[in-house]
Design a binder for these strands. Structure first.
Lengths: 342, 342
DNA sequence: CTGAAAGCGCTTACAG
DNA sequence: CTGAAAGCGCTTACAG
């Protein structure tokens, strides 16, 4: 391993000078700089990142805690896409990404505090928020820089990047109402997620505004899994009075809903319409193609890193939360007139 | 930030002793150990990871290079699942994961060498292999510990975890042959991937063994995208002589194939049968459900980390490559007798 | 513009 | 069983 001392010796200068060349210090002569750089190239010198971190107290690394599959939060398509946004922007800004996961819920705090107290990372990206999330409380108390992709009710002052999920669900429900539906159900996600709550609220607002009945039995809580959507249908469709349209929390769940309805002999959109969220590529390929709210998943990740880096660089944060725009993509699943028999 | 010196002072011992307590050195008295540990707890002491790395020359971190979306290698479902396997096993063994991505192909070597020369990581997991992959050549030459999820033809001695893709494709094609098909096509992935080649070879072997014609125009190269499958169909199905069955390289591509066939007015499995790879959850929910070869994606990631850690710990590697078993899951898409009209 | 020195927080022979 | 000392590879006031 070639170190700064080797280069110094070979170049006939001091280690300090080599260090200054590496960091483009202004008060270094053209000539010295060129010579040192040539020798670094020849020797294949790369600065030791650990040593640099130790003295600079900065790692140029962001931490990310993987949601645990046990929690069923693992929405593959969402996750892959948001991660792509995160990694892309981090890399572009010269940051690496350190990924860990907790083996259990009790372990989560320990895992994150290893990153924080061990000074492994400069900042942390949190991927989702439960209501009263202990991780948020911890990071906030430690005053450790972090950004939440999502929204925290208990800590409104932390850095957040989120959709306007209330409005997004309001838009989804309103679209169904505009189609003439009066009995609209909601297939939700885990009840302890802020996301589920916000979308439920938007759904309820739209119903209230249109003076439509809100029926508790039409609201089913589940997980971000196809099975959840599937099971929800056997519940909802066995009711004496059934909804004619559904707002579904996630495209994957919507696939399960679709299959559940098919098995029960209901057609979409003929018998029942639906709108879901995320607009994953496959939603366009489902039969029928699913109307879905595009939430700008990649943007969520990208912007989260962007604002976290602003925070780290001590820049003023102008907008908080940062709201990533959503857009309802209407497809066949929610348009009864436009139906095609297959 | 509380350091080892603070603890030493508070406990009335030397920093060396504290260090030994932290690392469970055997020759430390019960009593001293207890006292030091109590004070560490009180003070909330966490060892500085960077400092430890600097002297131990080990990071307890594995590196992973994200495939670039530009290369269209980004098979979301595969990627999420393999990553889950990687992170789970790494975490279980006390390792973190450092993730970077290259912004361009030229940049890849630079990105990986930053990890290697900068001593950021102890080992590297490579996620896919192109034929004559320059990253493999580089890591091999540097003698840096790494594992490839996939197979390298040019470097047969490196550590590899892979499916027997030749056999997997052979099984897929044989299944179709057993159903009585004689005209079988192959919708492949990017031609520069070893994966595509291996599966093509298996497909060809099965045809040859059954003395079936191999028609070049029935073999379409594409990407791991739905669009690829979609476009492949307009090509293949416009031929004067069309295949009656298809082996498709990836479930996502198969979704595109399915849509392409539907738009052209062909039914699956009535007019054309298909089998694909990966067995992602949605393949079961497609209409019709898609027969797919389960390649044990999670296992691939999990085993890759496991053997990389063995390598790092200097253990003898017994089997190389490690072969993760595959299994063909037969569903409606490849069984004409069992068809259901929808 | 450049160098000598101290120090980042830890580990580990060496000596006792 | 424990401590003093040297050192991991780098940075950065301080002095010139």
């Amino acid at each position: 391993m070639v170190t700064i001392k080797d280069i110094a010796r070979l170049a006939g200068v001091s280690p300090s000078t080599v260090s200054r060349v590496v960091s483009n210090h202004p008060r270094i002569s053209e000539e010295t700089s060129r010579k040192v750089k040539r020798i670094m190239d020849e020797q294949g010198y790369h600065p030791n990142v650990m040593a640099k971190s130790l003295v600079s107290k900065t790692t140029h690394t962001l931490g990310i805690l993987l949601p645990r599959p046990a929690e069923e939060l693992f929405r593959n398509d969402f996750f892959g896409e948001v991660l792509r946004g995160i990694v892309t922007q981090a890399t572009r800004m010269g940051y690496d990404l350190l990924m860990t996961t907790a083996t259990s819920e009790q372990d989560e705090l320990g895992t994150i505090s290893r990153l924080v107290r061990g000074r492994r990372v400069d900042g942390i990206v949190l991927l989702s928020s439960r209501r009263d999330d202990p991780l948020i409380a911890y990071l906030n108390e430690e005053q450790f820089p972090f950004v939440l992709i999502g929204r925290s009710e208990s800590h409104p002052d932390i850095l957040m990047v989120d959709n306007d999920n209330v409005r997004a669900a309001y838009d989804a429900a309103s679209h169904l109402i505009a189609q003439g539906h009066e009995r609209i159900g909601f297939v939700s996600g885990p009840n302890n997620l802020t996301l589920s709550h916000d979308r439920l609220r938007g759904y309820e607002q739209a119903l209230a505004e249109a003076s439509l009945p809100k029926r508790p039995e039409w609201i089913v809580e589940g997980e971000f899994l196809q099975e959840s959507g599937f099971r929800a249908m056997s519940l909802v469709m066995s009711l004496p009075e059934r909804p004619t349209a559904l707002v579904v929390i996630d495209d994957n769940v919507a696939f399960g809903v679709l299959r559940g309805l098919a098995e029960l002999g209901y057609g979409v959109p003929d018998d029942i319409c639906l709108v879901s969220f995320n607009n994953i590529p496959l939603s366009e390929l489902a039969s029928p193609p699913i109307s879905s709210v595009d939430i700008g998943t990649y943007q969520l990740g990208y912007s989260a890193v962007q604002s976290l880096l602003h925070l780290l660089q001590g820049e003023r944060i102008h907008h908080n939360p940062i709201v990533i725009p959503h857009r309802l993509i209407v497809r066949e699943s929610s348009i009864q007139q436009a139906r095609k028999r297959s």
